[in-house]
Structures are given as C-alpha cells and as structure tokens.
Design a protein around this nucleic acid. Sequence first.
DNA 1: CGCAGCACCATGATATACGATTTCGGATAC
DNA 2: GTATCCGAAATCGTATATCATGGTGCTGCG
Lengths: 229, 229
Amino acid sequence: MSQADDKTLSKSQRAYHYIKERIARQEFTPGYRLVLGSIAGELDMSVVPVREAIRQLEAEGLVTFERNVGAHVSMVDDSQYRFSMQALSVMEAAAIALAARHLSADDISRARAVNERMTAGLVDFEPHTFTALNREFHSILFAQCANPRMLELVNAEWARLGHLRYSTFTFVPGRAQESVQEHENLLLLIEAEAPLYEIEKAARHHRSATLDAFLIHEHPDEALRLLSF
Amino acid sequence: MSQADDKTLSKSQRAYHYIKERIARQEFTPGYRLVLGSIAGELDMSVVPVREAIRQLEAEGLVTFERNVGAHVSMVDDSQYRFSMQALSVMEAAAIALAARHLSADDISRARAVNERMTAGLVDFEPHTFTALNREFHSILFAQCANPRMLELVNAEWARLGHLRYSTFTFVPGRAQESVQEHENLLLLIEAEAPLYEIEKAARHHRSATLDAFLIHEHPDEALRLLSF
DNA sequence: CGCAGCACCATGATATACGATTTCGGATAC
DNA sequence: GTATCCGAAATCGTATATCATGGTGCTGCG
C-alpha cells in the first residue's frame, strides 16, 4: 500500500497518494466519478483533506474537476499518449544532450549494465520489467542534465506517460529489440563525445521511433508527422 | 483588480487569482511569508479556500509550502530564469516547427503586423508593451501547433517566465532590435516552407540569443553552454 | 554571561455543521 | 406518449471550532 497510510504524512497527502495509486492501478478508470465523501469515508477522514488532494491531482492533470459537480478521472485517449510521447522526445533529447558532457565513465557503465539486462530480458519478454529497465536507462542518461528545470519537466512527462498506460512495449514487443540497439548506439555517441546535436538527434530519433512503432501498430492510417532534424 | 473579485468564481479561485496577482505585481516578494489567516481576512473569507488556493500555487511552483509551518513565495534566483528560458527555447522551437505547416497566410500577416508594431516601438522603447507584443508574436507562431500537449507545456513555461520577472528586454534593451529582425527571418522561413529542422533551428537560436543577451548582461563570466544544433 | 529548558503564542490541520448548487426522477399536462 | 416543470436527494462550498505543531522569548541554572 506504499505511502498511502504513512502516519507521518498529513491526511491530505495520504489522500493524494491513495487516489493516485488507485488511478495508477486502474481501479479508478478514466471517467470514474470521484466522490469526496466516499473517499473520505474509505480513508476515515473528513472531506477537507480529500478536497485538497483532488485539487493537487487536478493541477497534475490526472483528474478533471467541475464546480458543484465533482471530480472525474481524466479521460485519456490514444492521442494524448502520442502527444505526450512527442513532447517527451523533444525535451528528453535536449536534456540528454545537455547531460552528455557531465556523464562519468561510471554512469555510462551503469547505463550499459541496465541495457544488458534489457537485452537478457528479450528472450522471455516481460513488458513490465522491460519498461522499468527502460525508464532506468533513460533516467541515468538525463539525470546529469545541467538544467534542473528541464529535468523536472522531463520527469513530469515520464510520470504522466506512466499514468496514461503501461508502455509501448506492451503493445509492440517487436520494438524492444531495436530499442536496445539504439540505446547502445547512444552510449557510443556519448563516449565518443560526439557533437551535442548528433547526440540530441539520436536521442530524439530513438524516442520518435518508439512512438512510430506505436502509431503503426495502433493507427496504421494516420501517421503523425514527426520532427526529424 | 481583474478577476480576483468576480462573483461567479468560487472563493478558492478568487483567492488563487488574488494571491497570484499580488505576486505578479511584486507586492508579495520572493520569500514573503503568506499567512493564511491574514489573506483570508483581506478577502473576507475563511482560511479553507485560501489553503486550497495556496495548494494550487504550490503545484505551479509559485509558492513553497512546509507542513505546519506555512507558505512562502518561491525564491527565484537568476538561474531559474535561465533554466526556464532554455527549456522554453527547446520546446517552443519544436512547437513552432510543428505549427509551421499549419499557419495560414492570415496568421503570417498578423504576426508580421505585430512585429511591425514592435519595430515602431523601438524608438521610444517601453519594455512592458514590447514584451507583451513579443509574447503575442510568439503565440501566433506556435498556436497552430498540432500537438496540444506541447502547446500546453509551452504556454505554461511562458507563464512561469512571466512570474519570474518582467522580461529580458527590461534588462537588455539593446536585444530588442535584433529580436525584431530575427522574427522577420523566421516568418520568411515559414513562408518559404523551409525544412522543418531549419525552422526549428532558427526558432531555437532566436530564443537562445535572447538568453545569451541576458546572460552576458548579468553574468559575463559564467556563460551557460547552449544547445546549438 | 551564556546556554538549556519550558511555557506560551501564532499558525496550520482537521472535523463538523450548514448552506448552495446541480442533477435526476416522477408527476402532470398537452 | 412525450415534454416540461417541480422537488428531493446528492454533492460540493464555506464557515466555525478545536486540536496539533512549531517558533519564540523568558527564566533559571551553570
């Protein structure tokens, strides 16, 4: 139950984590009506902290709120996933480029280790762990980004994607193989201290390709034109 | 007083706008202690709506909040401004590139009209209106961005910059001249249907140059290495 | 003279109560 | 049979009251 019942947290925060988690595990599905009173009852608190929690979730875009009506879990259609993914491709690539010169040899080898575990995982493919490793790999790369604001935005967008759905790999397992290869290429570029624009280009392409794979899988007809610079 | 006293808004929202506005006009300066009770008193409401308002502002990063202690207006040092600006340079450039093919001839001429008013404003330079026009110009360009998520992020970042300080032009008036010229160049590229990466490059460069101007003005020593692809 | 401990005060956190708004269903009229 | 209106129930919105927490200043002891 994670931190939803941590006694050191304020009740608002407990409610916040509680609702967020139930949304994450799809117990509150998109469109679900969130009734303050009921949730307060479940958590054995009054509605005031629940209201605050929902306001926070609203700010994050997880729920929509209408005055005197109530809160619903946000509707997320495929397009939102695509758009988020594309935004991430742009921001993350820039973040990785900004981080490239700050990555130590140790960072690189840690990233490579993760990528090797991903390679190993290709045989008996398990989308969930693969996705987790993928995120870890990417995190290592942009973690050293010298621009904390950008880091914040990238992390926020990753989190958002996490809420939208599990991952592309669940839907397009074939993409995993390529993905691992592109990871290694990216590492090589960074090690070679390739020009930053090359690194950014590679990183953006890597993510765009993931998105393309997803699009081709779900919407073979309406391909979204991507930036490829 | 704008919308801070609109009777149709909920009290939380009134409080929200009220506080935000006072921060914007520097009446609540960074570090200022926001006391719930006092604000509630000023607005003639109880503390509950004020709490919610502050939670929202916290989510936006305008105020920091510490449990059982209270809220302060966020400290914003120069670096935050730079980081935000850089993030914006990356996102907005991508957004403009994505919008480029969707801009009508009318959009272009509106943008050009704005830019001409900026040119006219160069003679008796007035940072505030110039900044407003600048924002309008940029808005026209990325408004047609096909990716609404990216649009959201770009707008949010513009708003954030607005809170941090008035604008670069206040500090580096000399930048205005170049800026206007770069605007025209950008318009020409879009009209010519230049490759998207060219447009993105130009847009990013335009913003980076603004940031550079600011940096050179404030921190001649520690130049932040920017992405130039 | 300085530091530690305690008590009081300011402020935030939450609960409970009441008022306001909306929504939905049923009844009535056409 | 259908449309419209009215009312009750559900739910949100806010205020007031009480409890918990953290800060600050005073006092007493070393």
